[in-house]
């Protein structure tokens, strides 16, 4: 179990997160929702130590998460990647092997097998030698999904994975998330997509600098909670 206690983050003089408490059960798909600027990405980044937190602790199975980074697969927002970087699809996924075998090892045959399996799972094996620039938005997102799969992590953090992706990518994503759930992985997804996808989650965390509600999707997305977070009435289509 992943437990976040009292997490407080100040970012360039502004309070981005205040006293955030929640816990994630393995085998559950948990979504973090909230308006723009609510601190959703900051929450992921501070849990991984990418942003310094002022207070709080993040523990996985009783030990600080920061000491167990090899168990975490993190998929950053697509906008944070330079898609013109000279690298092919296959080699992006190959980066995952470093976390498995140590940073200074060259890829082994076993690692190459793992990369192949991950690329087949996201239906990108045929495009493995393409430059990443030559992919669609959905395919680019799937490259990073494949990398996280090849990491063989226990904990998966996804930051806005559905931004500007096609239907096929969404379907592949959800079927893989389902498999990961069955394998008892811990899954946390930041999303501002409030459409029909919300039904997929086992638990939602509604935040706007602090946690406003947690629980089953229908318990969390009540008109009152929604108004408190977004400042306007619930309208799933416009959200």
């Amino acid at each position: 179990m992943l437990v976040v206690r009292d997490l407080t983050v100040h970012y360039q003089g502004v309070c981005a997160l205040e006293r955030v408490n929640f816990s994630l059960e393995s085998g559950q798909l948990v979504g973090v929702v909230g308006p723009n600027g609510a601190g959703k990405s900051t929450l992921l980044k501070s849990m991984l130590g990418l942003v310094t937190s002022q207070r709080g602790s993040i523990r996985y199975d009783g030990h600080p998460l920061i000491q167990q980074r090899q168990k975490v697969a993190y998929v950053p927002q697509r906008s944070q990647i330079d898609w013109n970087y000279p690298i092919t699809v296959k080699n992006v996924v190959m980066l995952a092997q470093m976390q498995q075998q140590g940073f200074w090892q060259f890829p082994t045959r076993q690692a190459r097998q793992m990369v192949k399996r991950a690329l087949m799972q996201v239906d990108l094996w045929d495009l493995r030698d393409r430059h990443i620039r030559e992919l669609s938005g959905g395919q680019q997102q799937r490259v990073f999904l494949a990398r996280s799969l090849a990491q063989q992590a226990n904990i998966f953090f996804f930051d806005e994975p559905f931004n500007g992706v096609d239907q096929k990518t969404k379907e592949i994503f959800y079927s893989i998330l389902q498999e990961l759930k069955e394998q008892n992985k811990t899954l946390l997804i930041v999303s501002h997509d409030l459409g029909d996808t919300l039904n997929y989650y086992d638990q939602l965390i509604l935040i706007n600098r602090s946690i406003l509600a947690t629980g089953l999707p229908k318990q969390v997305l009540t008109p009152e909670n929604f108004y408190q977070a977004y400042g306007h009435p619930l309208n799933l289509l416009s959200a």
């Binding site: 991984l48 130590g49 990418l50 975490v72 993190y74 980066l95 470093m98 976390q99 940073f103 200074w104």
Partner: peptide, 22 residues
């Protein structure tokens, strides 16, 4: 040559590299 892989990771995806403990 020795550090090619971690340097590739760092220059391509600095956040991911940091998250993975580089």
């Amino acid at each position: 040559i020795i550090f090619y892989q971690p340097l590739l990771y760092y220059t391509f995806d600095p956040l991911g590299a940091k998250a993975s403990g580089l």
